[in-house]
């Protein structure tokens, strides 16, 4: 499956079905994340229920703490 993640086209395994799977794939060690899916901001509760399909556009924003 091809996804546009943070502006870069990426090839991901077809095992990745939901937004939660995408988050786990890219940010395993960073649980604090905001996700925009095809232009829509998602609440945390919907991460595991929103399915993704070929060509979707995902923005992942990690909250980091350094300063």
């Amino acid at each position: 499956m091809e996804l546009l993640v943070n502006g870069t086209m990426m090839h991901l395994s077809d095992n990745i079905k939901t937004v939660s799977d995408v988050i786990d794939y890219f940010t395993a060690d960073r649980p604090a994340v905001v996700v925009e899916h095809n232009g829509n901001i998602l609440t945390k509760e919907s991460h595991s229920t929103v399915n993704i399909k070929d060509g979707d556009k995902i923005e992942l924003v990690n909250f980091v703490g350094g300063g």
């Binding site: 943070n6 502006g7 905001v34 901001i41 924003v61």
Partner: peptide, 20 residues
Amino acid sequence: KLISFDLWSNQYSSIDVQRL
């Protein structure tokens, strides 16, 4: 907008989070 950037991997993001 919530903005984030990675100056090494050249990624820039600006998203509307009002719905949160």
